[in-house]
C-alpha cells in the first residue's frame, strides 16, 4: 500500500497543479464557442476533442477541476473544523451536551446522504456555495463522532490528569492538550472522506444542482454531454476519468495513511 499511496499523492499533485495552471497547459478558453469544430474527436488540435458547442474539452476539464476539487477541499475543511469542535465538546464535557450533540450526529447519519444533500441544494439558491453547504451539512457528522471517540480515550490519559493537578483550566486542557492529539486522526479521516466528497460534488452537479452553466464541472459536463454518448463518446469519457481518478487517488491515499498510522477510524 505504501507505493500505491505515494503514486496517488503524485497523481493528485499533477491533477491539482494542472488545474491551477490551466492556462499554461491548454491554450483554449474553456467557454469559447467554436462553431467550426463541433464534436471534434480527440486529435492534434484538441487533445481530448471538443463538445457540441465546439469548446475544448481539455480546457473545460482543467478549469472544471478547479471548481470540483475546490468545492471538495473547502467542504472537507469546514467538515473537519465543525466535526472537531463538536467532537471535542461532546467528548470532553460529556453529560447532556454529549447526549444532545450525539443525537444530532445520529440524526444526520440516519439520512441517506445524497438525498439530504439534494434536499439542501434545492432550498438554497443554486451555485457553488450551496454545494459546499450541502456537502458540509452531511459531512461533519462522521468527523464529530470520530473525534468524540478519540477524546473519550484521551481524557483518561495520565498527562491530562497531570495537567489538571497543576491547575490548568478546562479550556487549556481542551485546546492545548487534547486538540493537538486529535489532529493526525482528523487528517487521516479527511483523506478517507475526500474521495466521497469529490463523488458527492460530481453527483450534485450531474443532477444540475451544482455550479450553473456556462461554468463547467466534471459532473455537469457528463450530464450535458451524455445525449451524445453514441456519436461522441469522448465527451463523456474524459470528465468521468477525472472524477474516478481523483476519487480513487484520495481513497488509496486515505487507506495508506490509515495503515501507516495504524489508526482505528471507526470512532
Amino acid at each position: 500500500m505504501k507505493t500505491a499511496g505515494i503514486i496517488s499523492l503524485a497523481v493528485l499533485v499533477v491533477i491539482s497543479l494542472s488545474s491551477l495552471l490551466a492556462p499554461l497547459v491548454s491554450g483554449y478558453d474553456p467557454d469559447m464557442i467554436d462553431l467550426e469544430s463541433l464534436r471534434e474527436p480527440p486529435g492534434v488540435r484538441h487533445p481530448l476533442g471538443t463538445d457540441n458547442k465546439g469548446r475544448d474539452i481539455l480546457s473545460r476539464i482543467l478549469y472544471g477541476g478547479r471548481i470540483s476539487i475546490g468545492i471538495a477541499l473547502t467542504a472537507a475543511i469546514f467538515s473537519m473544523t465543525i466535526g472537531l469542535a463538536i467532537g471535542l465538546c461532546s467528548g470532553y464535557f460529556g453529560g447532556k451536551i454529549d447526549a444532545a450533540l450525539m443525537a444530532l450526529v445520529d440524526l444526520v447519519l440516519s439520512f441517506p446522504s445524497l438525498l439530504l444533500a439534494i434536499g439542501i441544494s434545492i432550498i438554497l439558491p443554486q451555485g457553488i456555495y450551496t454545494v459546499v453547504i450541502a456537502i458540509v451539512s452531511v459531512g461533519w457528522a462522521s468527523f464529530a463522532r470520530l473525534i468524540r471517540g478519540n477524546v473519550l480515550v484521551l481524557r483518561e490519559a495520565s498527562y491530562v490528569e497531570a495537567a489538571k493537578s497543576i491547575g490548568c483550566s478546562r479550556l487549556r486542557i481542551l485546546f492545548a492538550h487534547l486538540m493537538p492529539q486529535c489532529i493526525p486522526v482528523l487528517l487521516v479521516m479527511t483523506g478517507l472522506r475526500m474521495g466521497g466528497f469529490i463523488l458527492t460534488e460530481a453527483s450534485l452537479s450531474f443532477l444540475g444542482l451544482g455550479a450553473q452553466p456556462p461554468v463547467a464541472t466534471w459532473g455537469s459536463m457528463i450530464n450535458a454531454n451524455r445525449a451524445y454518448l453514441a456519436s461522441a463518446p469522448w465527451m463523456v469519457f474524459s470528465p468521468g476519468v477525472m472524477i474516478a481518478a481523483t476519487a480513487l487517488c484520495f481513497n488509496v491515499l486515505g487507506d495508506a495513511l490509515r495503515d501507516r498510522y495504524g489508526m482505528n477510524t471507526k470512532g
Binding site: 474521495g195 454518448l229 463523456v236 480513487l248
Partner: peptide
C-alpha cells in the same frame, strides 16, 4: 477501491455504451 471511486452515473454510461 476502484469500484468505490467510480461515480455510478459515469460507470452506468460506460456500461450502456
Amino acid at each position: 477501491v476502484t469500484g468505490l471511486s467510480v461515480p455510478v452515473f459515469w460507470s452506468g454510461l460506460l456500461i450502456m455504451y
